[in-house]
Design a binder for these strands. Structure first.
Length: 273
DNA sequence: ACGAGCGCCTGTCGGC
DNA sequence: TGCCGACAGGCGCTCG
């Protein structure tokens, strides 16, 4: 489910608390309970239990789609993949279905990693760079300019949709925000990256930042049975709007498959040259 | 270097 | 009602 705006929303919520969900910053992890072993990427469960007990949560950030919890000595990295979520709940709450990892915290609360499809992963490491080092730049960083993006696009000859989904190219975009950004930029998902003019690259750069910032403003998107409180799904212009009229021109939105992912676009606003 | 195919998993939805 | 395939916000792997 989660792309950059959803992960950012979760990071901010864990850091500051939100609507009855308390902040976990400064709390100490008393013990861990792993309910699905494969949710833990590294280390082994016994080493994980030993190392995480007594660790205090000092900072919570996001890098791409990863959540990074800086602890006293280690860093806990969480990737939610398709269906993962993090909940802060009372220690006395019943264990919900699909909870995969529970961290009991000081103060009578716990952090629960819930993940119906079991694709999500958790890492406990001394150096987070080992996990994060292959990620591309952060699209919302002040230092990321449209000249940077143009240069990056020119060094590949790949369909735009595939590049935007490639986390080593740019970190944080997923299927929804890639489709939305391409629509706003007026670029066909199969356009070759190396063909973009500087002006088109600037449009894409602006569109990427706009959809991500708007997604964050709306606390992310909530879809299907996975709900996290955001409402950006009400502002999609192409994603899952197959057959419905484009808000710009009225043409029916089309769906195609690119890189085994459903891809939504307006054939009129996003022509393939 | 690239991209297709597949595996990992559970759940929902639409068609018959 | 039940079954069955398609599909789902992701990514790592193998193989051409």
């Amino acid at each position: 489910m989660p792309e950059l705006p959803e992960v950012e929303t979760i990071a901010v919520t864990l850091r500051n608390g939100r609507g009855g969900s308390p902040a976990i910053l400064g709390h100490t992890i008393l013990q861990a309970r792993l309910l699905w072993e494969r949710s833990l990427a590294t280390p082994s469960p016994s080493e994980f239990y030993d190392r995480i007990a007594g660790q205090t949560i000092l900072d919570i950030r996001r890098r791409g789609k990863f959540l990074t919890l800086r602890l006293s000595r280690y860093t806990l990295l969480v990737h939610l993949r398709m269906s993962g979520d993090l909940f802060v709940e009372s220690t006395s709450a019943p264990i919900a279905p699909h909870h995969r990892l529970i961290l009991d915290l000081s103060g009578g609360i716990r952090l629960a990693f819930n993940d119906a499809r079991k694709f999500g992963r958790v890492w406990l490491v001394e150096n987070p760079e080992g996990v994060l080092n292959s990620l591309g730049p952060e699209p919302l960083d002040d230092s990321f300019t449209f000249h940077d993006l143009h240069q990056m696009l020119r060094t590949h000859r790949r369909p735009l949709k595939l590049l935007l989904l490639d986390q080593s190219f740019l970190a944080g975009l997923g299927n929804i925000y890639a489709d939305e950004a391409l629509h706003r930029a007026g670029l066909h998902p199969l356009s070759f990256s190396s063909d973009l003019t500087l002006e088109q690259s600037e449009h894409l750069w602006r569109a990427i930042r706009q959809v991500l910032e708007e997604g964050i403003l709306r606390n992310g998107a909530s879809i299907d049975w996975v709900y996290r409180g955001g409402d950006f799904q009400n502002y999609f212009r192409v994603y899952q709007r197959t057959g419905k009229p484009c808000y710009n021109c009225g043409t029916a939105i089309e769906r195609m498959v690119v890189g085994q992912r459903g891809t939504h676009f307006c054939p009129n606003c996003q022509p393939l040259k």
